[in-house]
Design a binder for these strands. Structure first.
Ligand code: SF4
Ligand code: SF4
Lengths: 163, 163
DNA sequence: TGAACTCGGACCAAATCGGTCCTGTTTCAA
DNA sequence: TTGAAACAGGACCGATTTGGTCCGAGTTCA
C-alpha cells in the first residue's frame, strides 16, 4: 500500500548520484543513466521533473547536464518524490480534486484524515543526506527508537539506559 | 504513494460497521452492503478475505451472515488491510518474491529497508477501535506528539517541559 | 423442499504504469 | 559558421493492476 513509483526511485537514485559527485561540473542524462543502469529516456523525464520542482539546475548545449541546485541536506524526501506521485494521501477524499462520491457519511473519513496528516509529518523531516548513509537515517531521526523498541510507548521511559 | 486500495477501505468500513452492531446476531452481506452503500458483490469478496484472515466468522444458511471473531480492540489495522494489499512495502525489493533486477549495487536499497521497517512499525500498533473514534486515534497513540510538534526531534528532549 | 445465505472462480473494462520513440530547441565548441 | 551535444516535451504502446460484475456451487435453517 505504500510503494513508491519507479520514477520516484529513479529520482531518489539520481539525487544520490549527483550528491556524491559534488564536483563543480554537471552530469548529463546519458552519463547518469549508464552509471546507474537506468533507461535513459525515462531518466530524462525524471530529471526534467526534478528540475521543474526546483531541485536541479539544467545546463543546455554541449558539455551540459544537471546539477543539484541546493545542498543535499536541504532537499527533502517529499520534494523528490512529489512530482512523480500524483497523490500523497491514504484515501482519495484527502486529495483536493474531487475526492469520493460518499461525502460526509463516510465513517472512515475522519480517522483517515488523522492518519494522513500523521504520515505526511513523518516524511516531512526526512532529508536526502540521510539516504546517503543509512546510519544517518537510523540515528539522525527518531527512527532508531521506533525500530529498536517493541512499541513507541516505551519511548517515554527510554531516558535511562539501564542494562 | 501510500493510498490504500478500495477493497481495503471497504474492509475497514465493514469492520467498523460490525463493531458498532455488537449485537449477538450476525449481519449478512446484503444488509451490510445496503447500509454502507457498497457494491454487494465486491463486498462479498472483501468479507470472504477477512474471514480467511481469521477476523470474521461466517454463519452459512438462511439467517446467516458475518460476525467479528474478536473484540475490535484486538484487531489490528494491518490485519484488516493485508489481504487486499499485495505488497506492504516501500520498494519492490523488500517483497519476498523476486524483487528487483538490480541486486546489491542499488544505493537505494538500504535506506529503503530502514524506511520500510519504520513504517510497518508505525502501523503495527494501530487497532481498529481507534478508528471508531478519531479522538482515540489522536490521543491513544504517539500520534498526538507527532502531529502536535514541529519535529519529532524535540521528542527526545521533551522530558523537561521547560519553555 | 426451498429460500436465504456463504463460497469462490471466471470474466471484463478502465485506469495506471513503465517504457519507447520522435521531433524540437538551446547552447557550446571546433 | 556550422554542427554535435545536450535538454525539453509530446505521442504512443504494451503489460499490469484495479474495481467491478456475473454466475454456479455448496450449506443451513424454516
Ligand atoms: S470518503 Fe470514505 S470511502 Fe471515500 S475516499 Fe474518503 S475514506 Fe474512502
Ligand atoms: S533494488 Fe533498488 S531499484 Fe530495485 S526495488 Fe529495491 S530500491 Fe528499488
Amino acid at each position: 500500500m505504500f510503494k513508491v513509483s519507479r520514477k520516484s526511485e529513479y529520482a531518489l537514485i539520481a539525487i544520490q548520484h549527483l550528491a556524491r559527485r559534488a564536483r563543480d561540473g554537471v552530469t548529463s542524462v546519458a552519463e547518469l543513466a549508464q552509471a546507474e543502469n537506468i533507461p535513459p529516456d525515462i531518466l530524462a523525464k525524471v530529471l526534467q521533473g526534478l528540475k521543474r520542482a526546483g531541485l536541479l539546475t539544467a545546463a543546455k548545449g554541449a558539455g551540459g547536464g544537471y546539477r543539484l541546485s541546493r545542498p543535499v541536506k536541504e532537499i527533502h524526501f517529499l520534494e523528490v518524490v512529489r512530482p512523480f506521485e500524483e497523490q500523497l494521501c491514504v484515501v482519495s477524499c484527502q486529495n483536493d480534486h474531487g475526492g469520493c462520491e460518499r461525502g460526509g457519511d463516510c465513517t472512515l473519513r475522519d480517522p483517515m484524515t488523522v492518519l494522513n496528516a500523521y504520515m505526511l509529518r513523518q516524511f516531512a523531516d526526512l532529508t536526502m543526506d540521510m539516504f546517503l548513509s543509512p546510519h544517518k537515517l537510523l540515528h539522525g531521526t527518531h527512527m532508531d527508537v521506533a525500530i529498536g523498541e517493541t512499541s513507541l510507548g516505551r519511548l517515554t521511559s527510554t531516558a535511562h539506559p539501564a542494562d
